[in-house]
């Protein structure tokens, strides 16, 4: 049987080349047939998860929590030193300079990454704004959320900081950051499902030692990672509890 690997749809496909290289490397290292499937949106990916199609996923914190709690997945590793932060962006032309300047009725574009949206909502609390006083629109990806802001169809957007950094310089120039989260305790993890239960330790070892070989180093470079560090069950549990606390 062929196993399926997928990646949280945080970035547009042109930034995903590194994962194809990673997949080739992983197949060889594990001597297993693995297919990399990329989904255009959080929804389509979650459908595939519900249908039991996914065996390994580089998951955002919210999906990782769901996969561990409900689907028997186990977190094995995380990219070294990388954490997930949310930014609230607006157009450089916007009259507001800070969260406190935002008023009820503000139009917010967001994706279906609940962890980022929870952080975004929390950062609007000082201005006494919440889902009942905001006009929210959920779109399929961060680039689409950004586009709504640039087109003036949304006032602000909640974006994963790393996704903002991956936008083209010309797009970024048209955007300003109103506020950026500093939480430091949320991160993407590589989680492995039940069909590969007997290979989890092998996968963890491979990832954690990836930076020691020249080939692995090359693959990491393409992903923009320095290396992987192991994630324990307790660390995964902590992150799941933290997501509950953000709700």
């Amino acid at each position: 049987m062929t196993f399926q690997l997928t990646v949280s749809p945080d970035f547009p496909p042109n930034h995903i080349a590194g994962w194809y290289i990673f997949n080739t490397w992983l197949q060889k290292a594990l001597n297993l047939p693995i297919h990399l499937e990329l989904y255009p949106s959080f929804e389509t990916q979650r459908e595939a998860i519900q249908q039991g199609k996914v065996d390994m996923i580089y998951a955002n914190p919210y999906d990782a929590a769901m996969l561990i709690r409900e689907k028997g997945f186990v977190a094995v590793a995380r990219p070294q030193g990388k954490t997930d932060e949310a930014v609230i962006i607006t157009s450089t032309n916007a009259s507001y300079a800070a969260v406190d300047d935002l008023k009820p009725g503000t139009r917010v574009a967001m994706t279906n990454d609940p962890a980022i949206n929870l952080l975004g909502m929390m950062m609007l609390e000082p201005a006494e704004l919440d889902s009942s006083t905001l006009e929210t629109e959920v779109v399929e990806s961060y680039p689409v959320a950004v586009k709504l802001v640039l087109q003036g169809k949304a006032d602000i957007a909640f974006v994963l900081k790393e996704a903002l950094e991956k936008l083209t310089p010309s797009t970024r120039k048209q955007l300003k950051v109103l506020v950026e989260s500093q939480i430091g305790d949320l991160y993407h993890t590589f989680v492995v499902g039940e069909r590969l239960a007997d290979r989890r330790e092998a996968i963890r070892d491979l990832l954690v030692n990836m930076h020691t070989g020249p080939k692995g180093k090359d693959v990491l470079e393409n992903l923009g990672f320095q290396g992987w560090e192991p994630v324990s069950a307790d660390e995964a549990e902590f992150m799941m509890n933290l997501i509950e606390a953000l709700k």
């Binding site: 506020v179 500093q182 939480i183 430091g184 902590f238 509890n241």
Partner: peptide, 23 residues
């Protein structure tokens, strides 16, 4: 209190701190 800063801590059942983030 700075915008965007989020303090995280965990405790045991007695309220003894077991985790503190940079914030």
């Amino acid at each position: 209190y700075p915008d965007g800063k989020l303090i995280v801590s965990t405790t045991d059942l007695q309220g003894i701190i077991t985790h503190a983030n940079q914030a």
